[in-house]
Write a protein that binds this DNA or RNA. Structure first.
Length: 420
RNA sequence: GUGGCUGUGGCGAAGUGGUUAACGCACCGGAUUGUGGCUCCGGCACUCGUGGGUUCAAGUCCCAUCAGCCACCCCA
């Protein structure tokens, strides 16, 4: 299949790349305003980074990673998410030893092996941020508010912010036990996956999509019901701060994120406009991840937003302009012997003045060149004809009105750049 | 990994097993002399995803395979 991109990957063609650029511009802008600096990590890491970071029991690690060995026999993995690599970099460069908190963002491709469908690719892109070194609920609130601000700037509508707290290692055992006791009697009726989860990670039963499991877990003990004082206070503060910032949220006591490293605050943003994969972003606090990866005890929190899903939502909400062609300021048409050097030279000087200038590369008829100029929506066309060249002038045609006038070649640069 | 639907020119889309595979859009060229947008005329398919098979004959039937789409699992 030499002529098709690998399954689950997509070329971003010129008509689309414009939209990516506007999203990226928005990202850079918002990060500047919130005080986040970019970090760029490799797209592959030693496999252990993800196995230990994301969690061995996680679906992502168990069946979705792109693992390979390089020629030196190293076990490597294409990154399926951005947090673990960021933490690795934090440790490697001891960023935690500098001023805290450390606030970074990243944009880039992620890789997960799964069947492609609407809003799901094997190579997709995420915009994520991470904050290290503060356990304060202020950071939780800022991170969440920033995510919502980002969507808002792009014009996304009808989004829902789901919020939950899944507690910490102190309060989780209590909840875990209560949950297991609640589910145990019904164990045989749960789906296969959940029967395994019951033992390993019973929380996950709560957000199982299986209808029967949903019914069975009705009324089950929730994480918020078992929060320790510290976690409860923390959660209350996060909510209070969000309200103060005017960020609307929906409490969802079944929201349990799929990555093992989360604790306390967990959130997810969903859109109803992109098919079955409704989540367009999510994140949470991970106060133990840095330690898990062999570093000091440094609290962290962050989010990861799926850019394809953002784009999909924008598309389905009619937020993308359909006109895909870049505009040109000036098109230079030429016809006849000896006109090419004049046209070419003029194009260069105009470009150096900052104008977007197009000219004919196919040696086509003047008529064809005019058509091309029209397609570029060039407001002005410069016609360099043999007669003009001999007289030391060029013709400038205003496409909107069809008016033409001749100007001396020597003054062309000044006059033309003065039009913009 | 599982399931459903689909696969004809750059795109969209016809095509009851049997001559030269419609049409639309896009693209290219032309409609007297160097000029756009409208109109008109013309041009543009030696693998009908690929490989097998059935048949006198297959784009049209069967199988396999690949790919796309959608859904499940899970997630962004």
């Amino acid at each position: 299949m030499l002529t098709s991109a690998p399954r689950g990957t997509k070329d971003i063609l010129p008509g689309q790349s414009r939209h990516w650029q506007t999203i990226e511009d928005t990202i850079r802008q918002i990060c500047r305003e919130y005080g986040y600096e970019e970090i760029r990590t490799p797209i592959f890491e030693h496999s252990e980074v993800f196995h230990r970071g994301v969690g061995e029991t996680t679906d992502i690690v168990q069946k979705e990673t792109y693992d390979f060995q390089d020629r030196g026999g190293r076990d490597l993995t294409l990154r399926p998410e951005g947090t673990a690599p960021t933490v690795r970099a934090l440790l490697e460069h001891k960023l935690y030893a500098g001023p805290l908190p450390v606030k970074v963002y990243y944009i880039g491709p992620m890789f997960r092996f799964g069947r492609p469908q609407a809003g799901r690719l094997r190579q997709f892109h995420q915009f994520g941020i991470e904050v290290f070194g503060s356990a304060s609920p202020r950071v939780d609130a800022e991170v969440i508010a920033m995510a919502m601000d980002f969507y808002q700037r792009l014009g996304l509508k009808k989004l829902q912010l789901l919020l939950n707290s899944i507690g910490c290692p102190k309060c989780r055992p209590g909840h875990r036990q209560a949950l297991q006791e609640f589910l145990q009697p019904k164990a045989t009726e749960l789906c296969g996956d959940c029967q395994k989860r019951l033992d390993r990670n019973p929380m996950r039963v709560l957000d199982c999509k299986n209808e029967r499991c949903q019914e069975l877990s009705q009324g089950a003990p929730t994480t918020v019901g078992y929060l320790c004082d510290v976690c409860a206070d923390h959660f209350a503060s996060v909510k209070e701060l969000l309200e103060a910032a005017g960020v609307e949220y929906t409490l969802d006591d079944r929201l349990v994120r799929g990555l093992d490293y989360y604790n306390k605050t967990a959130f997810e943003i969903v859109s109803t406009d992109i098919g079955a994969q409704s989540s367009i972003g999510g994140g949470g606090r991970y106060d133990n991840l840095v330690e898990t990866l062999g570093g000091p005890s440094v609290p962290g929190i962050g989010f990861g937003l799926g850019l394809e899903r953002v784009l999909l939502t924008m598309e389905n909400q009619g937020l993308l302009e359909s006109d895909s062609r870049e505009l040109r300021n000036i098109f230079i048409a030429m016809a006849g012997e000896g006109t090419a050097p004049v046209a070419f030279g003029l194009a260069q000087t105009l470009r150096k003045k900052g104008l977007s200038v197009e000219l004919d590369y196919l040696e086509r008829s003047l008529k064809a060149q005019m058509k091309t100029a029209d397609r570029f929506h060039a407001p002005y066309v410069v016609i360099v004809g043999q007669g003009e060249v001999e007289r030391g002038v060029i013709t400038v045609r205003t496409m909107g009105t069809g008016e033409q006038r001749e100007i001396p070649l020597g003054e062309a640069t000044e006059i033309l750049s003065g039009l913009f």
